[in-house]
Design a protein around this nucleic acid. Structure first.
Length: 501
RNA sequence: CGGGGGGUAGAGCAGUCUGGCAGCUCGCGAGGCCCAUAACCUCGAGGUCGUGGGUUCAAAUCCCACCCCCCCAACCA
């Protein structure tokens, strides 16, 4: 059986979950559910990045003396959020976990053994206020830190370095051989340009301030967060703790990431893996960013939206639907409540919800149904395009083709006018075929919606009286007319009650 | 300054690679239906395809110049 290992970024505990994080996680969840649907052994991993030095400061600011308590509390916030959004992650990795630390140490030793870690010094302009280095180009005209308006100090630090530059040619060769590694394709140029022109050895440790994973053999330094964080993809499937499990899952089939971290995943990460002698991920997909009503999501504007608030009002599937459908996957998009509400009313209430309600009301008091073939070609075509679109990482367009099938169903109802057939006893057989065809279209829709709108899909199965439908293999269940008996249809409950009267 | 992406109907987008009647959703207008969640179906109005120039029988699409927006630019998930 084929396997599919997919990851989200691990989220920074210092942040609070917002709509952009929910987007990445919904997307990964959708792909994971799709691969489970088609019968692949699937693992979806998400988690939190907890070793950054800034957490020490953040804990103090929030009046928490123990940093571990602070990151525990913040990590729990992320876990609760994904629970409330019904994310089907199989595991949740935290970089402060023992299993992660052990894997990181093993990895460090492997890279060290390859001769790719050396001690060097880093010199730069350091602003004490920011606790960060600046390049001269980033300073003000007077040579001051733009945030604090103070003169940065020239600081020299001894650090461990990773011989990233050594892998320049190997990375270029790798990208040459695997043109599909970076998706969407537009990101590839960016990555190649970076590798060709800007690839230099990087510092992978910092002087320890008592937080983070110590450099093996040198307690005075901690491992730089990026080097540590990327390794979650390995440690989350057993690297360093369960080699048998690790071998079963690695390499990752798909890393879902934000476009801002493309370089780390397409240059640094593969170089690290090459150094450690491990296989490289098969695909990295960089999704786009949102604006909120046209503005950047930013802490200073305070416009970050907690996805849990939206879910409370609209439901998990409505938010999923909006994000997947409205924002072309890989491109940027704009989020606004007005547009969410608009999609909800037009596509979910008037579209899918109304169609389901329409069919069930027509069919519920009819005691015998038989499935005709009128809608069969539509759905067979929909399935074909659906699989193609998932293969092309286009879940939003998969929703589009499903909605075309709904339209075809609505049209079929109008053409056949079953409410007219009902009045004519001579047309009983035709009526049974029309209604059977429509009920079958609902069963097909529920299957198509499994990975995209899982809660809605389940509701439709229940309304059809097909509670056990889940357990069937897709290859059998997706065949048109494979469930012909008259289902015990429940009285339709609105799937998506209208927001506006 | 360098690299990347984008500017197409009132709104949001597809189409540009491989030149050939400018398309989709929402909104708007008219008609139909009355099973359904003020839902459904049909038809229609609406566009100097960022600007200027060029190539071509033909350009949203190819070439040149320019304007505007966004992202990245070595440690800012």
């Amino acid at each position: 059986m084929e396997k599919f290992y997919i990851t989200t970024p691990i989220y920074y505990v210092n942040d609070r979950p917002h709509i952009g994080h929910a987007y990445a996680t919904f997307a990964a969840d959708t792909f994971a559910r799709y691969h489970r649907l088609v019968g692949e052994r699937t693992l979806l991993l998400t988690g939190t990045d907890e070793n950054a030095e800034k957490n020490v400061e953040a804990a103090t600011r929030e009046g928490e003396s123990n940093v571990q308590d602070y990151v525990n509390r913040m990590s729990a916030l992320w876990q609760v959020t994904w629970d409330e959004l019904a994310i089907s992650n199989d595991d949740f990795i935290r970089t402060t976990e023992e299993r992660h630390r052990r894997g990181v140490e093993k990895f460090w030793h492997a890279v060290e053994a390859a001769g790719d870690i050396y001690k060097g010094s880093y010199e730069g302009l350091y602003c004490v206020g920011c606790e960060a280095f600046y390049r001269e180009a980033d300073l003000t005209a007077e040579g001051l830190c733009p945030d604090h308006n103070r003169k940065p100090e020239l600081v020299k630090e001894d650090n461990y370095f990773f011989r990233l530059s050594k892998y320049k040619q190997a990375l270029l060769d790798y990208h040459e051989r695997n043109t599909g590694l970076v998706a969407p394709a537009a990101r590839r140029n960016e990555v190649l340009n970076y590798i060709t022109n800007h690839l230099e050895d990087i510092s992978i440790s910092r002087p320890s301030k008592g937080w983070g994973i110590p450099v093996p053999g040198d307690e005075s330094q901690v491992i730089y967060v990026w080097f540590d964080a990327l390794l979650n993809y390995l440690t989350g499937v057993g690297y360093g703790t369960d080699e048998e499990k690790f071998n079963r899952w690695w390499p990752a089939d798909l890393h879902i990431i934000g476009k801002d971290i493309t370089k780390f995943h397409c240059a640094l990460w593969p170089a690290m893996l090459l150094a450690a002698g491990l296989p490289l991920p098969l695909r990295v997909f960089a999704h786009g960013f949102f604006t909120i009503s046209g503005q950047k999501i930013s802490k200073s504007l305070g416009n970050a939206i907690d996805p849990r608030d939206l879910v409370e009002t609209y439901g998990v599937d409505a938010l999923r639907y909006f994000l997947l459908r409205e924002i072309p996957f890989g491109g940027d998009g704009d989020f606004s409540i007005e547009r969410l509400a608009g999609r909800y009313d037009s596509d979910l209430a008037s579209g899918l919800g109304n169609y389901v309600s329409r069919v069930l009301t027509l069919a519920k008091d009819v005691d015998h149904l038989s499935v005709g073939d009128a809608l069969r070609p539509i759905f067979e075509n929909t399935w074909r395009e659906y699989h193609e679109l998932f293969a092309a990482n286009e879940p939003g367009r998969a929703l589009e083709v499903i909605w075309q099938a709904i339209r075809a169903g609505d049209r079929y109802i109008d053409e056949q006018a079953p409410w007219v057939l009902k009045k004519d006893p001579q047309k009983k057989e035709t009526l049974e075929i029309v209604l059977g065809t429509l009920v079958e279209s609902l069963r097909q829709l529920a299957w198509l919606l499994q990975p995209l709108l899982p809660q809605t899909s389940d509701k439709i199965f229940i309304l059809l009286g097909l509670e056990q439908e889940h357990d069937r293999p897709l290859a059998e269940a997706s065949v048109w007319g494979s469930e012909v008996s008259a289902p015990k249809i429940a009285s339709p409950q609105p799937l998506f009650p209208r927001l506006t009267a």
